[in-house]
């Protein structure tokens, strides 16, 4: 299982795609990071006198992590599409299927490999606000809460993308459909009637992410992400097992 995860990560870095994605997301995020800092330094003098005013963590780090979430939502289908659709198209799936591995191990291996890549991406993003700690004090509790949120969000994206990839042999279809599903889950609460609690707003990936960027870790948000991840991983395993049966 870990062998497969390692292999998956290695293969990602052998393709230019991974490097390009890393480089371009870093570029975009670095630009956004600078604009946030610029904004902060422009209003710093005005808010300095106000007691309880938002600090550098809330005005720079939190928005940056929010931006990172959106950018990863956009690029994650491009990487997860390869997971099974490409294996199927290159007919390399029999290699894994005839190895002494269970389908669960194969799926988890792939999942961990892809997840590792996004964790690298997230850590690189994190290094930007953390670099500010040289000059100022950061609220590391709030920062780690939003990081946890980002990681859970990424883990859900990857699980959804993996499932979409297991449905088809065309990587592009996998990418488009997982992007559509992710986006739908992102904006699904728009249709809510503004009530305090509705099913649609509960389903929204964003709704569970926001409290964490504010520094709140609720068990209901944690369990929401864990449910999403397990559901889609189980669906993937089932889907691939069914392929063997019919």
């Amino acid at each position: 299982m870990f062998n497969l995860a390692r292999h998956e990560l290695l293969r990602l870095f052998l393709s230019p795609l991974a490097w390009v994605i890393l480089a371009l997301t870093q570029l975009l995020l670095a630009y956004l990071f600078l604009t946030h800092i610029d904004y902060f330094s422009s209003i710093q003098a005005r808010i300095a006198a106000i007691p309880g005013a938002p600090g550098v963590t809330e005005l720079v780090a939190t928005p940056l992590i929010g931006n990172a979430a959106i950018i990863i939502l956009l690029v994650s289908p491009l990487l997860t599409m390869r997971a099974f659709a490409e294996e199927r198209r290159n007919e390399t799936l029999p290699l894994l299927a005839s190895a002494p591995l269970s389908m669960t191990q194969i799926v988890l291996g792939k999942y961990l490999g892809n997840l590792c890549f996004f964790l690298i991406l997230a850590l690189l993003t994190l290094s930007m606000p953390v670099s500010l700690s040289v000059a100022t004090t950061l609220d590391f509790y709030q920062l780690s809460a939003s990081m946890l949120g980002l990681i859970l969000l990424i883990a859900s994206f990857t699980a959804i993308g993996l499932y979409m990839s297991s449905l088809t042999r065309q990587p592009t279809i996998a990418a488009v459909s997982s992007f559509a599903l992710l986006f739908l889950l992102w904006i699904i609460d728009r249709a809510g009637d503004g009530a305090e609690f509705s099913v649609l707003s509960w389903l929204s990936l964003l709704n569970h992410f926001e409290p964490m960027t504010q520094g709140q870790i609720n068990t209901q948000d944690l369990s929401f992400y864990l449910i999403v991840i397990t559901t889609f991983l189980l669906l993937t395993i089932r889907r691939l097992d069914r392929e063997r049966l019919d």
Binding site: L10, L14, T92, A99, P100
Partner: peptide
């Protein structure tokens, strides 16, 4: 079933671990 982006040695090492 070959991963075309790997070298022969890398691929066989992966297969050995896989098995």
């Amino acid at each position: 079933p070959l991963y075309k982006e790997l070298t022969v040695k890398e691929f066989l090492q992966f297969c050995a671990r896989l098995n």
